[in-house]
Design a protein around this nucleic acid. Sequence first.
RNA 1: GCCCGCGUGGUGGAAUGGUAGACACAGGGGACUUAAAAUCCCCAGGCUUCGGCCGUGCCGGUUCGAGUCCGGCCGCGGGUACCA
Length: 862
Amino acid sequence: MSRYDPASIEPKWQAAWEQAGTFRAEIVPDRPKYYVLEMFPYPSGRIHIGHVRNYTMGDVIARHRKANGFNVLHPMGFDAFGMPAENAAMASGGHPKDWTYGNIDTMVGQMKPLGFGLDWSRMFATCDEDYYGQQQALFLDFLEKGLVYRKNAVVNWDPVDMTVLANEQVIDGKGWRSGAPVERRELTQWFFRISDYSEELLSALDALDDWPAKVKLMQANWIGKSRGLQMAFGLIDGPEGHDRVDIYTTRPDTLTGASFVGISPDHPLARRLEKDDVELAEFNAECRRMGTSEEEMEKAEKRGYDTGLRVRHPFDTAWELPVFVANFILMDYGTGAIFGCPAHDQRDLDFARKYDLPVRSVFVPAMGEEGTFILPEDGGPAYVPPKPETVRYVAGFAGEEAQTGDAAIDAAIDFCEENAVGQGVTKFRLRDWGLSRQRYWGCPIPVVHCDTCGVVPEKKENLPVALPYDEDGKPIDFSIPGNPLDRHPTWRDCACPACGAPARRETDTMDTFVDSSWYYARFTAPDAGTPTDLKAAEYWMNVDQYIGGIEHAILHLLYSRFFARAMQMTGHLPDKCIEPFDALFTQGMVTHAIYQTRDPQGRPVYHYPEDVTLREGRGYLADGTEVEIIPSAKMSKSKNNVVDPVAIIGTYGADTARWFVLSDSPPERDVEWTAAGAEAAHKHLSRVHRMASEIAGSDAPETAEDEPLLREMHKAIRDVSLGVESFGFNAAIARLYAFTNALGKSRAGAGVKRQAARALAQLMAPMTPHLAEEMWQLLGGEGLVADAPWPVADESMLVEDTVTLPIQVNGKRRGEITVPNDAPKEEVEKAVLAHEAVVRALEGGAPKKLIVVPGRIVNVVV
RNA sequence: GCCCGCGUGGUGGAAUGGUAGACACAGGGGACUUAAAAUCCCCAGGCUUCGGCCGUGCCGGUUCGAGUCCGGCCGCGGGUACCA
């Protein structure tokens, strides 16, 4: 009998699938299709165990749907543009293109041995000229339809490296390489008009029934629809052209508690005032030195600058309020100006206490709800109850005295509109999507700047506008600061597409989120001469099951939803594709301990897991140095805590790796990689292989044990099918362990055992496809198990004759009874009351209540 | 800061509002073996006066019954618009 040897059986079956074209996806008009897609990887250099988990999940779904008769599309590609390639070129020389394609080769070579049922013929990388050329064509069509425009926006500027920094490259307000304080700089940049679709992207979430509720909630909050009031506060003796400050508020019911007006440092009034006020100019400059991220803005200490100017309250012209410039007010949201009501906003209260501004409550808890309430003006915290809660308005001006915040807001808006002091408006938090990046390794924005014609779209026949590889005859040198496209000796030079005069190319490239916003559509026709092929899109779209990390819950998924709409509008997708992902599953991340030591400066130094030896919960380097272990950390290239699956496959085989990543945790939750788990998985698969070999060689006659095994088989078919369909992979695997144990113990005859073992092979096939093929062949299965129809449970074999009911007394388990499956309720009650533990508890009396949940449980209340 | 999750034995985890801890890992005991490896079998939440009692991050609530639903905390994670 042969041992389980994945190193020989895995390549054998991979070759068999390859030769048979098992996973080639071809359009077959009459067959139902199923499109499974996992978020494609960034080519970081090597695959990690997170990829294995993610793609194994997709493969389980794909193989299961194929077995259920669907024509399955399951493609793979690479999200290949982005900063790491440029960072690598800067850090260790070389060219981003060579680095990226080298990584892709490596990763494909690492993925193929995993035996995923992928149609590799459709593979592309977003940095392929063919792909980004088609993306440029999309951009031009979007431009023509007015879906793209230019405006100014701020970026993080590193004055030493002379480059724009990403938010993650700004650390404590300083550039990550240069250490120089970061400045905010305004540049003219391209934007997609995603905010035009705010309402649509919000309301369409309702129909996404097979998306996780949490993702829809996150998107809804991100889009942030709010009904509020816009109104003007008259400015007293303001500079020329500034006679009012327009504010936006979602709490107009608190207008009578206003104690100041705050404006953003980027507000036109602030910009005007700083010209004559050195101190304010310094304050604003300091605000602008902050990073551009929302997190940083919000976490920063709330600071303000009293402009000395005053405004009149719209309700009472005698009531004057000071105007502050405040660092926490965003120019991008609302009007860039607010009124502060310290009593009902903690941030405003902190601000008021800092700058000694008045605090005046507008409402207090409802009668009888006061409890230990302390007024904010008496030192209590800001009183901010949920809007649906009823409160008592002590300084109300519209509606009832006792009313909910929601009702008060409506009444306040009505009041302001009737008195012509304000206007009810709906606003969204969602901003337009800035797509310009001042970097080399991205899709060039296909426009030309002409001195006479201005900004001119490139002609489609001139696409792709390809990235230059060389500079002065040599590969571009990334050790020189600045954008290589900007400084390239010839690349920028071109003829104006409109007038033919010498002109300059746009040197900005596109955000890599653009690349990933339509790749799912390109997979349906990866070689088309246009971005999509409508016939192929019509057949394959939408993605039936999309699988990816929760970290993409908002940006990637929202951008893709926008892009699908924009592509539909420009004729690149059929109408039915505006929501491209029918079902979404967000898998958890794979975590792994971080091993770190410190350099002489106290900065962390991260070590690869393979360089660390674990002994009794502590970790040591080869030279004996102990490392600090930070458990369950997100895997990150920069932290060197990425597990390498190649070694796992080499030791145990792909099926073991696949089995383990599914078995150890529920798929939506994070999983911590452990070496012991892989060892255990391998032992189990060896055992299954051994059992299959034994059963294949047995000729034991049929026995009385045949039927119990068949019952177990049908129950396993039912439970595993359900598990696979509902992403309960770990539960399905637990069930397969139990079924394997039952098969191992069974004394059934060879015929029934073979039947059960073939079912086991089929049920395991989505997870461990190579082993399953081997078993299938040993056990006399016909053809490939990958092509075999999914087994169906026989309902009649699932029905049990008797059922065991636990008996509770006052909700606590005290015993159990076994009754016939179809016993009438009266009979069950009689049996329960006769039970020893119940008799003892009743002490001769009658139960207060007797609850019988048929087939489930009995509860006696005494 | 704000938005969204998650929290169950030594460990990973199971459990349509209905027997908490399935299935595994690590551990203990046994069989086989000259011995070891491999394999197979058994035990296993804590406490206990052996009647039971306590247990799903903490506090409270709803319910005949709560890991599950509701409210309030604590801890950890994801996102926070230029990481992908």
